[in-house]
């Protein structure tokens, strides 16, 4: 994010910098150029995120295509209720982060902070639910990779089906990497909430909030695809 060094440019020796707004970095001509650049940069970063996950989706598609029965059996042990709740939680957090941008565009800092904190709370809720889901699996010996040793009723029969471990490996890797992105997103949102509270942003300049919002929506979109593929079909 292209933000922190804003004041540095005031010392520039060149006269053309005289009446620049303080958030404008010296090498940009206008705020608009800076904003457009930041946004294009963010979109490029987002497609790298999409391609990062795409490899996991490809792995999923390949193994599902080869072992449909194992995937169906393994998938049926995932808790679709918790998955659905988590989907709604993330969708709501997408709404609140969109609202935070709406409010900062209207220069309503208080509501911006509230929306961001709501997003943060929902993200936290998502992780808590995910934690309980993981724990429920670990209790029954469902681990990624070599440690996979299902025990207990409703799980033992999985041991007899080949390629079930593949499903859980992919499940844990996909949701794990997604979870890491949620944690990073929470960090960014906290930072934005704090800065919005401090009064860094206004309807003149709120690029970091907008970029954080974009990032958060991508995290949501990835879950939108993960949820039906892992829990339902």
């Amino acid at each position: 994010m292209s933000t922190e060094t804003a004041p540095a440019t005031t010392e520039s020796v060149e006269t053309e910098h005289d009446h620049h707004p303080s958030h404008l970095q010296h090498h940009f001509v206008s705020s608009e150029q800076q904003f457009d650049s930041a946004k294009l940069g963010m979109w490029l970063f987002l497609i790298t995120e999409i391609l990062l996950f795409s490899a996991l989706f490809v792995a999923y598609a390949v193994y599902r295509n080869w072992n449909p029965v194992a995937f169906a059996e393994a998938s049926s042990t995932l808790d679709w209720v918790l998955g659905s709740v988590n989907t709604i939680v993330l969708l709501t957090s997408s709404l609140t982060v969109a609202l935070s941008i709406h409010f900062i565009q209207k220069n309503d800092r208080k509501k911006t902070v509230i929306s961001l904190l709501a997003t943060l709370a929902l993200a936290g809720g998502f992780l808590v639910i995910k934690y309980f889901e993981y724990m429920a699996k670990f209790e029954h010996g469902i681990y990624p990779g070599e440690a996979f040793a299902p025990t207990g009723s409703g799980y033992e029969y999985l041991a007899a089906i080949p390629y079930v471990p593949q499903f859980f490996s992919i499940y844990f890797v996909m949701t794990g990497i997604h979870g890491v992105h949620v944690v990073i997103g929470m960090g960014l949102i906290s930072w934005m909430a704090w800065r919005a509270h401090r009064g860094d942003f206004s309807d003149e300049w709120y690029t970091p909030v907008e970029l954080t919002g974009l990032y958060w929506h991508i995290v949501d979109i990835i879950w939108i695809f993960l949820f039906p593929l892992l829990y339902l079909v």
Binding site: A59, P144, P165, Q166, I170
Partner: peptide, 11 residues
């Protein structure tokens, strides 16, 4: 973790 995505011995 031997997640078994690439290693044929693990499927």
């Amino acid at each position: 973790l031997q997640i078994g995505i690439f290693d044929p011995a693990l499927g």
